[in-house]
Write a protein that binds this DNA or RNA. Structure first.
Lengths: 248, 248
DNA sequence: CCAGGACATTGACCCAAATCAAGATGACAG
DNA sequence: CTGTCATCTTGATTTGGGTCAATGTCCTGG
């Protein structure tokens, strides 16, 4: 379980804090009653498939802890990740019977699930939840558009740096600010999953990680823990716009 | 003006048919009254910038005719298209003051604009319009995810083929079915815009177009008109899933 | 009709990342 | 402790698409 996940696990309370923040950030508590009555928690082991592309989906869910990935595959086996869901992200497609993507637990994963039909009913009857979902979907679309820039125009080194930055930012948003802008990230992804995210091969990911280490941009503590000594400085230097990403 | 655009231009009527289909497909007519009162049409010449990334945006809009592109740029000039808006598509980001992307008219463009504030108010007060916008946003997210697969894993030839297929499909959806599955597409994009869409250089786009022509997969009629002789067969052969795209 | 400029094509060469191929590391079962 | 298996690293080689440069093709306005 990642550091992210651990943090969230300790916050459990009667009204699931993640879902509260995620789906109903600004709703009154009584608006949650209906959702509350139909939620089901589900746990998946790292590597386990949550559902296959083409499966009938009658659940939607919110990520409580861990990391889920959406992937698309061509018949010849080429694979591209098309979604990376971290705690508080929404999973599912209201209004669609059939899943378009394969969902996999990248690390140990805890989902908070709702049956799709009642959830859609709730969307219809409760504009605030619908509005919140629209907002989340728009954010996800923005993230997808940054991802398009990454896949279309960045070099392998820049791709790796951007991914580490995305993960480090989410880490930083949750944790207290780290001293000196130094930040540690537990990679929730294998080299292969990173490659699928970045449109690279796992060999290239490995080589570029080694190169970033050699150049002193990152420190590797085991295979899955990355320390970025100058994260604070690097991120603040290069605003939040569509720049090449720091660490490059 | 593209064939698309011409078709739509002839459909003009009191209640803008595009907006009707796009934003309020299943709304009652009286629900449109409020929208109706605040709409403004705006026309842009091919190549003209509609708004720059970072600009204050106080409009949202619907594409009536023509093609608009959203692009993202890195400081060193590398450019990636992150959105391609055809007639009936929605433009704008309710809830955001500042535009994240540069919007350009790829061909001559007619927009139907609404002031953002009243539009947001309408979203709040009218759940059916909000629901419709959510549906459109989810569709756009799906399209973005197909685009991720294209950028991350497809060869130059496959990228071109996929783009032609996307344009041909929209053409086919509007026009009567063409005889023999033969279809003609007026490219609304320059080679450079195609390259920005596909994450390639314009030289590679040009070379691959020539190669497809040489191989008899497409016919070029001038620079901007493409005929795909076997479109019907190619598309039906390879279902609608995440395949490599036909024409490859 | 011709000149100028935007857009497109084609060629020669190069390089970043893919591919193919060994090994290294590390977690875990027995 | 040791063998197995998944994961990761590193090296040698190939190649698809980028880069640089020259040429071609329209369209438009004078």
């Amino acid at each position: 379980m990642t550091a992210n996940a651990a943090i969230f696990a300790t916050q459990s309370c009667e009204i699931c804090p993640i879902r509260y923040r995620a789906v109903c950030a600004r709703c009154e508590r009584d608006e949650l009653a209906e959702l509350e009555s139909v939620k089901i928690y589900r746990r998946y082991a790292a590597g386990q498939t949550v559902s296959w592309a083409g499966d009938r989906m009658d659940m939607v869910a919110s990520v409580v802890s861990g990391v889920a990935s959406l992937t698309q595959q061509m018949e010849d086996g080429r694979t591209q990740m098309v979604g990376l869901l971290l705690p508080s992200d929404f999973l599912g497609r209201p209004g669609r019977e059939v899943a378009a993507y394969t969902v996999t637990a990248a690390s140990e994963l805890l989902l908070c699930c709702f049956r799709r039909k009642p959830f859609e009913e709730l969307l219809r009857s409760n504009p605030r939840i619908a509005g919140r979902l629209l907002e989340m979907t728009l954010d996800e679309l923005d993230a997808a558009r940054d991802w398009l820039l990454l896949l279309g125009r960045k070099s392998a080194r820049e791709k790796i740096a951007s991914l580490l930055t995305i993960l480090a930012r989410r880490e930083a948003a949750l944790n207290l600010r780290q001293p000196e802008g130094r930040i540690a990230v537990d990679l929730p992804l294998t080299r292969e999953a990173m490659a699928d995210y970045l449109g690279l091969t796992l060999e290239t990911v490995s080589r570029q990680m080694s190169a970033l280490k050699r150049d002193g941009v990152i420190e590797l503590d085991g295979k899955r823990r990355v320390v970025i000594p100058l994260f604070g400085r690097l991120v603040s230097e290069s605003g939040d716009d569509a720049d090449g990403g720091p660490l490059s």
